[in-house]
Design a protein around this nucleic acid. Structure first.
Lengths: 194, 194
DNA sequence: CCTACCGATCGGTAGG
DNA sequence: CCTACCGATCGGTAGG
């Protein structure tokens, strides 16, 4: 899941740990829990990882980097503003449904990073929030988006999108395409008729 | 904050603990951390609380109960569907800005409850999600809401609303009234113009 | 990969 | 309210 080819033991540890961190939260998961799930003794994990936080760092930065790269591509494109917002929604749905556990950790467990990683991560997060907000501000200025406070829009929409991997379940009888279409309608067109 | 009159020592412990749980997560906060913040030794806390989880239970159930009571009032009212959705948005804004730490814990730290509290809490949560979804389903059936998948609407809107206490900050130059108005426009009318 | 073990800290209790 | 202390568990290391 985390890597398509040659899944190393380290990758396997990261993947099992991600599933546990998602369920119980980083702090409530012990190295023993991870080792049990991987099928070794806790001490053996240290042949593949440096520390418990090493795992968290790998997950948070790998997915934050992937997200930021794609978001920047959208921001710098020549598409109209509503199209850009639609693309950001699609990006969140794609990432959030393909690597649910890892995305949840990137979004909600990063606070357990220690310095200097914590500051680096917070700077990345703040930076992409600004990128998103600038798109909204531009849309309002150009008159293609309603005059809603851009800060409120940014946080409200990002909150909704970041939480997708928590509840989406392909057993629920909806496809990823359904998810993309419905969320775009909700956010761009609103719930109410007329 | 948690209670207006006669703030007992127990209430003070709960309030200080809530602030720590919000910042670091329930599992990463020790009884020593709470005691330090309250200004006593950890052992002394046990004169006022039964256990660490006792604090979590009090926070989760107090606010879940308050929320459910008010949500049921809205659901059973005779107002039109869009008005009910607006009232639910207002309810989240009011609760989320008045008791930010406690609401965050109720929304995101309840998974650390043990049985039978965990099952009780999950049942309450599922029940109010259904209440909200029934309102959306009725609105779609009556033709006053767009034909968007009610499950997707319910989770997307609730995710956005539950996260408000995480980012709202009255220093940001927006009032609670701004928050209510802007989020209602976003969700009911959508971002895009025409 | 394992066993054996480290010091530190955990939530909680006894007793005054 | 405190000091003193409990057994359990924590993340991590040594050494093979």
């Amino acid at each position: 899941m985390l890597q398509l080819a040659k899944k190393s033991k380290r990758d396997n540890i990261t993947e099992q740990a991600a599933a546990l961190f998602k369920e119980r939260g980083y702090s409530a998961v012990s190295m023993n829990d991870i080792a049990d799930k991987v099928g070794v003794k806790a001490a053996s994990l240290y042949n593949h990882i440096k520390s418990k936080e090493d795992i968290l760092q790998e997950i948070c930065f790998r997915f934050a980097h992937e997200y930021v790269t794609q978001l920047n591509g959208i921001a710098q494109s020549e598409h109209p503003i509503p199209h850009k917002i639609a693309a950001i929604i699609d990006l969140h749905v794609t990432l959030g449904t393909q690597n649910a556990a890892a995305i949840i950790i990137t979004n909600y467990e990063w606070k357990h990073l220690s310095e200097p990683y914590l500051s680096d991560f917070k700077a990345m997060r703040k930076s992409y929030e600004k990128t998103f907000m600038d798109i909204i501000t531009e849309g309002v200025a150009k008159g293609v988006l309603k005059n809603i406070n851009p800060t409120i829009v940014m946080f409200t929409v990002l909150s909704a999108l970041r939480w997708i991997p928590f509840w989406y379940n392909d057993q629920r009888g909806m496809t990823i395409e359904d998810l993309k279409t419905n969320i775009k309608t909700l956010i761009l067109k609103g719930l109410e008729i007329e």
